[in-house]
Each structure stands twice: as C-alpha cells, then as structure tokens.
Design a protein around this nucleic acid. Structure first.
Lengths: 357, 357
DNA sequence: TTGTATGCGTTATCAA
DNA sequence: TTGATAACGCATACAA
C-alpha cells in the first residue's frame, strides 16, 4: 500500500488527475456530484498532496524561516518561548511551516538566507529584532525577499516611520507610562526609574515613557533626580534600587524584571515599614516596584510587571507576512504595514513571606 | 539572471547534467580535470541544488520535525531554549533542517506526524519526553518512522531498559546524589530533600538519588524525616522549606530551582546566623540550598544548582537520529542506542545583600 | 465540465 | 568516464 498520488487516485476513480487537482485547488470548477465522489475517495485513501512536487511546480514552499538566537543569560528567555510558540501556531493555522536556523552573526544570517532561499525555497523570513543600519533587512529588501520584523526599525535612536518593510512592535514607552500612572493614582509621587546603561533605543523608549507620564501627572519636578541606570542583572537592581531609595523614592519602575527583582529586594530590606503588606506607611501608600516583560519569575514572586502581548505580536507578524506573500502573487504592491501594540501592567501583591527579623 | 540549474550549467559547460550531478554526489566517478572545471563554474554561478527536486527524486527531505510545547508557567523555560538552539545547530551541521509544529495533545501530535510525513516528507522526529504507554512512540514505531527521544522511556515508574527506540537522557539521580555528597563533605548531616507531590518518575529519580547518597554517606538515619513534597512553585518552596528547617535541616536539595528559591528565602529568614556569608554557624558549616536545572534565575541569585548538559543531549540526539536515517538507507538495522548523561553541580555563593533588619 | 500535454530540477539506470 | 532517458508528483495552459 504505497502512498496515494493524484495518478493512483485518478486510476481508482476513473477520472483524470486534473479533475482531482481541481477539486482541491479550484473546487468551483468541478461538478458537485463528482466533487463529492472525489472528496470521499481522497478522504478514504488518506491522500495528501506532496509539498515537494507542489513546490517544484508553484515555486512556493509554504515554509517560513526564523533565526534562533542563542539563549541569553537573562531571565527573559520565556518571552522568546511564548513568541515562538505563538508564531508556530499562527503559521500552522495559515498553512505554513516554520523552519529554524542558527547563525553566528548578522553576516552569517544573510548567508543562511541566501542558502535557505535557493536550496529549501523558503517563502519568507521573520526577524526578531532590527538594528540601525541593519545589513539583514537591507539584503532582504534588495533581493525582494518578503519578511516581517518583530521590533521597530530604529534610526539613530528614533523609530523611523519611513521604514519600507512590515514590522510589529510593542510600545514600551506606553507600558512604563501606564505603570507611572498607576503608581501615581495609588498616591506615589517620588517614582523612580531604573534602566539600562547602554544607549539602546528600546531602553531609551522605556525611560521616555516614565518621564512623559511623570510630567503628565504633575510630578515633573522629580524627574531629574530619580532616573538611574545599572547593568541588567539582579545585583544591578539591588545597587540601583539602593541609590533610588536613598533619594527617597517610594516606588520604582524598572526596564526589566531582573532589575525589578533586585530593587524589590532592596525595598523589602531598607523600607520594611513601607513594604509590609496590609500596613501602608502613609495614607494608603505602599512601596511598589514594577518590572518589565512579566516573566514567570515575576509572577512567582508577586512582582507587578509590564506584560508585552507577544502572542498578539506573533499573530500579526504572521498575518502581515502571509498577506505579503499572497499579495506578491497578485498585485505585487503590498502596503508595508506596521503595528504598535500596547502592553498592559499586571498588578500583583508581593508574595507573603514570614515576617523579617 | 534566473537561478542556475543543472540544465543551465550543463549548457554553459558543454557537459551533461548527469556529470554535474555526479561531481556533487559521487565525485569519485568523474575525471579530476572535469571535476575542477565543473566545480569552478558551480562556485562562480552560486549554484545550489533544489531541495524540492532532490526530495522528489530521493524521497528524503533532509528535514526533522519537533513539537513545540506551550511555554510552561515555570522558571525552567530557558532549558528548552538552550536545548532547541543546540538541536538546531547540530541538525544544521549535519545537513538537516528543523521544522517546528504545535499540537493540542498527544493524539493531535500523532495526527501532525501523519500530515508532516505525507505532505512535507519529514525524515524523522525528535520528542522531548515520553510517558508510560506513550501513544506517540507506539505510532512512530508501528509506522517505521525514525525518531529519538530526550528522556528515558519510563515503564511503571522504572526506566525500561528494554526500550526499542533511541533515547538520550540526563541521570537526575546522579545529580541529586552529587549534591548530597558535596554538602556532606562540607560538614552537613541533616540534609533534606524537597520534591514534587505528583508521582512523576523524573521526580522520583531525583529523590532516589538523594536517598542513595544519604545512605552511602552514612546519613541514612535522617532519611525518614527529611523528605518533603510541595507544589513546584516558589511559594511551595517557602512552605516546604519552612517545614524542613523546623526539623533542623541545615541544607536542602531541591527537585527544581523554583522550590530552591523559596527554600533559600526561608533559610535566610529563619536561620540568618547559619546563612550569613563568611560567618559559618558551626565548624565550617553554612546553610545551603541546591536547586535543579541551573536556570538563569539561579545564576542571578547565586543559588547552587544541578546543571543538565542539555547541549550535549541535543547533539547526541541529532547524532542518533541522523545515524538511524543514514543506516536505514543501508542495512536497515540500526541498533537502538541510548545514552545516560551525567549532570554536574554548579556551586555558587549566594548573592550578598544588605544585612537584614 | 473534464481530459491531454508539458515542465518544474533532480537522481537512477543503463548504454556508450 | 560520460551521456541519454525516464521517472518523482504536481499544476498550468489549452483543447475537447
């Protein structure tokens, strides 16, 4: 019992291969009666069209590619997990498969594009970030290869709206701004920001959101003194947090959960009164830390955090890319869409622990 | 400038397509002089053989499949990241590509196998776990589909050595045993174990390793009272740790980093003297917690942890699977290999924090 | 509405 | 050592 093919089914049914092909690819062109008959046999025989043969003819592999970056040291690996899963799921639902590959550098990534394009015939690529003056996006554009990026194209520190490619991103500034608004509503006024040292645009945006919301809440006078930067680690959070607390911050918005975990630890120790659950130190005031990325660790520790809608982002990326792929076959002029998604603050009560000595 | 094909190169060179094909697939069968000439043109033209056409002819896609499980709530997602990256890298080095897919259940996974096998012609699959009486491994075996599993086949709680398929696993018991040995060497005698509640074989093995090493270290008398189980969360670790400390445990070996983080928190609070860095409470004794999986959080907190060699595991899995694939073409009787890798304990000094109130 | 002929790019078989 | 021929399974253009 070899696998059924168009030819074997045609022989069994007494019709031509073409008719069966039409049943699958252009059902309208075949008479309902025969269509039913053909479908029944397809079902019974468990027939599946061969992707290889189809690809050879149509020059489309129904296959998308994505580079898997090496696992970072950070806590934020779970965000990639969620993104990848949603991506796979969306692609699958759209009839595409997802192929993973590794690369040592951006230049190597371009080499992989070229190989995967020629050899495996991938239809398009998904990038998980883009840098200013990115060799990869330029290569893809020059070669007319469809792709979509998770992350804005940053141009000299500012998001360049003139990007001529599809992208989806999360509005980090809106996230930190919402965190500030929330804290201000709770009565906090000395709300600090703890960010990264490098001048990466993503970090800058998160800081900008904090500053914007501080001013909008009438707390602009605190902006100059309450912004700190530290290495993106827990101990970085400890030292940065200590400094902010020394400047009388009662709440801290952080650029990452790693920093936030460290800062939370500091507040617990240096301001036990402010921290104790159920015992607000001032009128309704309770010390608070907000992280970024809503990692499982944050959830486990009861740390509030800005949650990125990565699943939505993945879905939109697949949609943009598949639309472009479908469009290319037709008009060839797909509008390069882009989308900025809003994160939301997940508010949590810190894990109750035994009272401290 | 359309992409070069065997035909176009043949025309350019004045030789037959077959000769070029031989240069690539059976270099020995072609005269060195022409081989050089052909290779030069292949290089210059940037020719790449089409995987689709090749697959159509050879019935091999050079493509492996793996189900991506939904991101778990746990902290241990980063282990999957590392595994996946190493897997992709190894497969790539062996000339294979890796295709990801999602499934709602094990039954659905089997359905995906069937589809991917027929449609995309995947050559084999990688499974990241197997359960007792697993529908997936049974289906794959019945259909003669090559596959390899990360994780022993567990049979009624015991690893069944009679498994008739390739697998690679990490010896969890050896990991917890090594942790106990290390703690005993440091002077600890009341070493507790904090594991999971469900009777999953993986957790049982970790507990068994602890018990074995306790007895081997002459600490068997402590075994009955110092084994606890809790939900696999940080707060589970807090409550489990509290209980063990109440029973005078000075060190705790945990089945996961989540539990260990909670237990560490307890020790810090309830036994500050035992814990304080540089101030051993007894003769060289200092309270200690050992986690499992060596997640980034453990590294960040300075938590000792049992590290699984997931990169090695991934490499071996790819090796086993590709050997089976290569062998199938030949003898068809690949020996079902299996491999048990040893983890190692990463010893760390807890993150120094400001002294507690 | 259905059938026929052709080609996608490669490798296997066999003959020269 | 090389070349001609025939598939692999499908979809497209066109004829019936």
């Amino acid at each position: 019992m070899a696998r059924p093919t168009l030819a074997s089914l045609a022989a069994e049914l007494g019709v031509s291969r073409q008719t069966i092909s039409n049943v699958l690819n252009a059902p309208a062109r075949v008479k309902p009666a025969t269509r039913e008959r053909v479908l029944a046999v397809i079902e019974a025989a468990g027939y599946r069209p061969s992707a290889a043969a189809r690809q050879l003819r149509t020059r489309r592999s129904m296959n998308l590619g994505m580079r898997l970056l090496p696992a970072t040291d950070g806590i934020n690996g779970s965000v990639l997990d969620r993104f990848l899963h949603a991506l796979t799921e969306s692609a699958q639902a759209a009839g595409y498969r997802l192929t993973l590959f590794c690369a040592d550098s951006d230049d190597d990534e371009v080499l992989q594009y070229e190989q995967l394009l020629h050899i495996a015939g991938l239809d398009g690529f998904i990038l998980t970030s883009s840098r200013p003056d990115d060799v990869r996006t330029r290569w893809l554009q020059e070669h007319g290869t469809p792709f979509a990026v998770f992350g804005r194209p940053w141009d000299a520190g500012l998001p360049s709206e003139s990007a001529s490619h599809a992208w989806v991103d999360v509005d980090g500034a809106a996230g930190t701004a919402e965190a500030v608004t929330m804290l201000a509503r709770q009565g906090h006024s000395r709300i600090g920001f703890l960010g990264w040292q490098d001048g990466a645009p993503v970090g800058d945006a998160r800081r900008a959101g904090w500053e914007r919301a501080m001013r909008a809440s009438g707390l602009g006078q605190h902006v100059p003194g309450l912004s700190m930067a530290a290495p993106d680690t827990i101990s970085g959070g400890v030292s940065g947090g200590r400094e902010l607390i020394a400047r009388d911050a009662t709440a801290i918005v952080c650029a990452s959960d790693s920093l936030a975990i460290g800062a939370l630890e500091c507040l617990r120790e240096l301001r036990p009164g402010l921290f104790a659950p159920g015992q607000p130190a001032g009128p309704g005031l309770r010390a608070a830390v907000v992280g970024f990325d809503d990692t499982p660790v944050a959830a486990a520790l009861g740390l509030s955090s800005v949650a990125q809608p990565v699943e939505d982002a993945a879905r939109h990326i697949v949609r943009l890319l598949t639309c472009e792929l479908a469009g290319n076959a037709g008009a060839g002029a797909a509008p390069e869409e882009h989308l900025l998604l809003a994160p939301r603050v997940v508010e949590r009560v810190p894990l109750p622990l035994a009272p401290r000595g």
